[in-house]
Amino acid sequence: MHLAVCIKYIPDPEAAFSMFSIDEAAKKVVPASGLKHVVSPFDEQAIEAALRIREAHAGTRITVITFGNELSRNALKHGLAMGADDGVLLSDAAFDDGDSYTTASVLSAALKKLGVIDLVLTGRQAADGDAGIVGAGIAELLDRPLLTFAKSVAIENSVVRVERVLEDGTETLETDLPAVVTVSNEIGAPRAPSLRETMRAARKPVQMWKAADLGLDAAMVGAAGARSVREKLFAPSKTVQCEFIEAVTPEKQGARLAARLREAKVV
């Protein structure tokens, strides 16, 4: 089998937001220089899901794909060190300032170029834009069934079975391969790169493709191909002032809080 995992390289989403600034004129979020970048957490979990499938099916090949600037090569390195077999970097100035639509188009074109991919895995959403669109876009553009928010993924006899997170439980779904699955955090912690795989990673093949390699016209990608236009980018306003409840013991604090909540007609 051949699995492909789409991974995005982003500024650490767990970093305090004071490490970012909002450039309202450029309509961009700017991370502080030197802020650590990581593989978006759900994407790392998608790699983990792929590795678990390979454990059950020896001989499975796992390709990690990222779309971004030259720095995104580090995302591939991380994926390869976790155990993926090869990587693809999609990088081209023509791709700049695209949107979810152009990202899905470019990734789909690369997936097609890779040949028959039995299962494409993505994160449920990239932890910078929080959109959750690209996985669905790939499924539609490749005309494949999509199973979202997976908490477990297993393959048997060319059928993929997913346990999917619902708001009040889970559902088990199946579909025939080839298919697309988006992975949620309920799948559990991704493995850390092992020393052995990290050593091997340097020798694993990584290809770099540009728009022309994918047969994509400049008008179809980047700002020209985007379907959305960003009008504004801003920080949400905050107005609350916290009233701290002081007292000599925690018990008295609790009692005082009750009294204040009653005065404020909250309880």
Partner: peptide
């Protein structure tokens, strides 16, 4: 983000709050 805040150990504050309410 909070309108009211208590700096303290929940294991003591919450039961006291519950009793007082």
């Amino acid at each position: 983000e909070a309108k009211f805040g208590v700096v303290g150990d929940f294991a003591k504050v919450v039961p006291a709050l519950t009793a007082a309410i």
